[in-house]
């Protein structure tokens, strides 16, 4: 499934929305998550999972092809931890509690 398929499916569930509206909504959802990560804010979505930004320190590395020493600068990397409900569903386990509305 791609973002386009996701937009189509949202659009099918909400037929009164224009395709453009659905597109704006999906882009806003992921855009706001990217913004939060840029602020290094933890994102927690119940029943889905959480996203955190981890820091990696600068380190020395090697070009595996030439063996030349290169320096890898410090960076920030996004990290996703799957939530319990989704972890169980992906593994086709019976969830031990339903917290759906």
């Amino acid at each position: 499934m791609t973002k386009r398929d996701l937009i189509d499916e949202v659009n099918r569930r909400f037929p009164h929305l224009s395709r453009f509206d659905s597109e704006v909504i999906i882009n806003t959802i992921f855009g706001s998550m990217v913004d939060a990560m840029e602020r290094e804010e933890r994102i927690e979505i119940r029943g889905f999972g959480s996203f955190v930004v981890k820091h990696r320190r600068a380190r020395g590395g090697r070009n595996p092809k030439t063996g030349a020493i290169v320096s890898v600068s410090a960076k920030r990397v996004p990290f996703f931890k799957v939530g319990k409900e989704l972890r169980q569903r992906v593994n086709n386990e019976q969830p031990d509690h339903e917290d759906s509305q």
Binding site: L6, F14, I25
Partner: peptide, 15 residues
Amino acid sequence: DVVEATFDIIKNHLE
């Protein structure tokens, strides 16, 4: 409703 549905759809496909 739309935001809930979005995550719901993603979860269904991953499942």
